[in-house]
Write a protein that binds this DNA or RNA. Structure first.
Lengths: 334, 334
DNA sequence: CAACGGATTGGGAGCGCTCTCATAAATCAT
DNA sequence: ATGATTTATGAGAGCGCTCCCAATCCGTTG
């Protein structure tokens, strides 16, 4: 039913080869012939069979996007959709398509196999939250071009990231400069680089201001609302007067705990979040937070991947985007 | 570099055909032979080339997921990730893969071409928000198996949906039964079926309770926070004592408008939202809302699609999931 | 004992495309 | 005018798989 190269060739009175040349932009085609063929293609709405092309040529114009499904937090805040949107924009612009893989542990081996040996992908973008993600490991050992979203502490891989260290630092410094004495933090999971880096930023800010790092003012969360709520309850007895929460979703949970405990924000406890999710501006009080350019991050990843596919042997490349502190009322600065 | 059927065949001392049979679960294989072949496959981590299989057999095990990118609201609340997650779960379980397409208007024609003529897809799930989505139209005219998420008022197509009419009805009735006299609504866009149905539910509830439908108590939003805020400001002069807001994101906006105007919730104005997004429980006051089983909806869509792929000529099938009213404080019922 | 049938297996064709090579036509240098 | 080079096109092979048909083997049956 669908048309083939041969059909187009017949209609344009040329050979299959010539049609192929036209489609792939080969320069060795007579201008007139090209016009003729392009005409037929447009008129019949012809689309070359992707599978056949893939088989014959090896390249496919399809990139994989791998997201670990274990991270439930990803599905409660808009990080993930924004990321995808950024990637897809860049994809559309470069005439590529995306295959999506949510890797649940049960299917991990299959996913790896399909990605590496299925022969369908030109490259992969992997939003690898856990540092020791098996898919990442497999990818790293293979020669499949790929880009990691979020830097990796040990592996020498291509990545794009936001400057989480600096972001955590900015947030904490802001609270410190406002005169807060006991600045606590609810961190992200310490097996994810974003969680680690934001926490390191917190530590460095304390150091820079000559404040002691009090272990009782540090609790680890996992980016979920629930863990923010519990974290805040753990923190409360130690009387913090400010908290840097490593993402907005946890900040919402923290806010709930504070509200229940009758603690006023920002008077008694100031709060700074991270992400600037849309709801942040509309919390009560509006949340001061660190904004990260998530859409841009996705687009940057895609651009980098295309570059790597084009130039497979180039040295690993990194791209780090900056964050911005959005001051609202929860930090009590105004 | 990657292995082929032929390689496996050689190692197992059988023919390419036999290996193919084993892989595809053909019963006409000697038990012993099967074991032997499966062994080699497992040992070498062999994965048949998807492109080649697709080319030879026509079927691919890949389904397309089409989401119109125009709908910005999709990216501010977790509807979309939850949907994807539901679909992917069903996909993993059935050994299928997903290609993702966000259709921006600029690339619509290309997307349609690739989906229909690329030869790579076994079927398509389309979350068609606008009723007159061109991709939907094209799909409907083609013989590509597809399932629509959200029913369609005119087209006879396969779909899964939640019972938005009933949901809107339940929410409105709840307010009415609480004794509210002037129940307003901020609707979703009236070119999306979800927006339409929830509004119809509102109308039917009024009717059932013999309340007049007052046009000044109805404003149309577009599912964004901003439109909820503006909608509420439009409504305020007409002194509603309750509002059914067609999604939680708009409810957050409405809440902000009420807060700014110094109107107390739920004392002066009661509020019910729709979606039960995770933040809903943590707003101030916690939001009464209609919960829909989004993940299940995605899984149901995938299951239906698999069914249709298997039985292409069966009559169109529909599946409607029910909603649940989650009562919290914003409706003032307790 | 020849003919027969089912259970297994192997081989060939072909899916629609790209790529290399051969050919033909056109251009250039000598 | 002849050979050499460039430009434009076509033909054939082959990517890795599935599917169909033929071949083989074995146990049955008349």
């Amino acid at each position: 039913m669908p048309l083939t190269l041969e059909d187009i060739a017949k209609m344009a009175h040329v050979s299959r080869s010539t049609v192929s040349r036209v489609i792939n932009g080969d320069t060795n085609v007579n201008e007139e012939t090209r016009k003729k063929v392009e005409d037929v293609i447009r008129r019949l709405n012809f689309q070359p069979n992707i599978a056949a092309r893939s088989l014959a040529a090896g390249r496919t114009g399809i990139v994989g996007l791998v997201i670990p499904a274990g991270v439930t937090a990803i599905f409660t805040d808009p990080y993930f959709p924004q990321l995808i949107q950024g990637i897809m924009k860049a994809c559309n612009a470069s005439d590529h398509s995306v295959m999506l893989w949510l890797t649940e542990a049960d299917y991990e081996r299959r996913v790896i196999r399909q990605i590496l040996y299925g022969g369908l992908l030109s490259g992969v973008i992997i939003a690898s939250n856990p540092i020791d993600d098996p898919v990442l490991q497999a990818l790293h050992k293979s020669k499949m071009p790929f880009v990691l979203i979020g830097r990796h502490p040990n592996l020498d891989v291509n990545y794009v990231d936001v400057d989480n260290l600096n972001g955590g630092q900015k947030a904490t410094l802001h609270l410190l400069r406002l005169g807060r004495q006991r600045v606590a933090t609810i961190t992200g999971p310490q097996n994810m680089i974003a969680g680690i880096d934001r926490y390191q930023g917190y530590c460095q800010a304390l150091q820079a201001m000559n404040c002691p790092l009090r272990p009782e003012l540090v609790v680890e969360g996992d980016f979920t609302e629930e863990s923010g709520y519990l974290g805040m309850r753990t923190l409360l007895p130690h009387r913090p007067d400010a908290v840097f929460v490593a993402n907005d979703t946890m900040a919402i949970g923290a806010l709930r705990a504070l509200y229940e405990a009758g603690v006023s924000v920002p008077q008694q406890v100031a709060l700074v979040g991270y992400d600037d999710m849309p709801a942040a501006a509309h919390l009560n009080p509006p949340l001061t937070t660190v904004r990260q350019p998530i859409g841009k991050l996705g687009a940057a990843a895609m651009e980098m991947l295309l570059e790597i596919i084009r130039q497979p042997k180039s040295p690993t490349s990194h791209r780090v985007l900056q964050t911005e502190l959005i001051v609202r009322m929860s930090c009590g600065s105004s």
